[in-house]
Amino acid sequence: MAKITLGGTPVETIGNLPEVGSKAPDFKLTDTDLKDQSSSDFEGSRLVLNIFPSVDTGTCAQSVRTFNEKASQLENTKVLCISKDLPFAMARFCGAEGLDNVISLSDYKTGQFGKDYGLAFAGGTFETLLSRCVVVIDTDGTVLHTEQVSEVANEPDYTSALNSLS
């Protein structure tokens, strides 16, 4: 379990992020058109998984905006913004903001992604929501970089995540 804080209050996740160098767990999530998207749909592309509790919070929204800006400069790389928000909320936010360089996906149906990646909150106010993390995956499914953000209100280290693609 990762020990992090939420507004300064200690909380834990149900596990730990996949190890750098390991094979990323497969996933199946729901896109903004309510269609299933699985890890196999992104084969051959590098992936930046921007994971967060809810796009309706300031820090989460900023991470989507920042990765959207950076994504257009990345070769053979897709940025997946993942939360347990309903797909409608993600579509509303990205549409209103004009964000079209990221792919919004939801773990609302089963929560299996949060379990398989070990990043769902184990208790507290945000229990079962996804904690703020970044996972970078190479074209062959190998984990290149992970970051479990230690304070949920903080933004991830964008530079480290993107530098792992070099």
Rank of each mutant, 00 (worst) to 15 (best):
residue 4 I to T: 11
residue 5 T to V: 06
residue 7 G to D: 02
residue 7 G to H: 14
residue 8 G to Q: 08
residue 10 P to G: 05
residue 13 T to G: 02
residue 13 T to V: 05
residue 15 G to K: 01
residue 16 N to I: 02
residue 19 E to Y: 00
residue 22 S to A: 10
residue 24 A to W: 03
residue 25 P to A: 06
residue 28 K to G: 13
residue 29 L to G: 10
residue 30 T to M: 04
residue 30 T to C: 01
residue 32 T to P: 00
residue 33 D to E: 12
residue 35 K to S: 14
residue 35 K to V: 03
residue 35 K to T: 00
residue 37 Q to Y: 04
residue 40 S to M: 04
residue 40 S to G: 13
residue 40 S to L: 04
residue 42 F to H: 11
residue 44 G to K: 04
residue 44 G to L: 01
residue 47 L to P: 01
residue 47 L to F: 03
residue 49 L to E: 03
residue 50 N to A: 11
residue 52 F to Q: 13
residue 55 V to N: 05
residue 56 D to V: 12
residue 57 T to W: 12
residue 57 T to G: 08
residue 58 G to D: 14
residue 58 G to S: 10
residue 58 G to T: 15
residue 59 T to F: 12
residue 59 T to C: 09
residue 60 C to A: 09
residue 62 Q to V: 00
residue 62 Q to W: 02
residue 63 S to H: 03
residue 66 T to P: 00
residue 70 K to P: 10
residue 71 A to S: 14
residue 72 S to T: 09
residue 72 S to C: 00
residue 74 L to Y: 10
residue 75 E to G: 11
residue 76 N to E: 14
residue 79 V to T: 05
residue 79 V to H: 08
residue 79 V to R: 08
residue 81 C to P: 07
residue 81 C to D: 01
residue 82 I to H: 10
residue 82 I to R: 05
residue 83 S to T: 00
residue 83 S to Y: 05
residue 87 P to I: 13
residue 90 M to Y: 03
residue 91 A to K: 15
residue 92 R to A: 05
residue 93 F to L: 05
residue 94 C to R: 03
residue 96 A to T: 14
residue 97 E to Q: 08
residue 98 G to Y: 13
residue 99 L to Q: 06
residue 101 N to I: 02
residue 102 V to N: 02
residue 104 S to N: 12
residue 107 D to L: 07
residue 107 D to I: 00
residue 112 Q to P: 00
residue 120 A to G: 15
residue 120 A to P: 07
residue 121 F to Q: 12
residue 122 A to R: 07
residue 124 G to I: 13
residue 124 G to W: 09
residue 128 T to A: 13
residue 133 C to Y: 00
residue 135 V to H: 10
residue 135 V to D: 05
residue 137 I to Q: 14
residue 139 T to C: 04
residue 141 G to I: 04
residue 142 T to D: 10
residue 143 V to Q: 13
residue 143 V to M: 08
residue 143 V to W: 11
residue 145 H to C: 04
residue 145 H to V: 15
residue 146 T to Q: 09
residue 149 V to Q: 12
residue 149 V to H: 11
residue 149 V to S: 01
residue 154 N to P: 03
residue 155 E to Y: 07
residue 157 D to S: 09
residue 159 T to W: 06
residue 159 T to F: 01
residue 163 N to F: 00
residue 164 S to D: 04
residue 166 S to A: 13
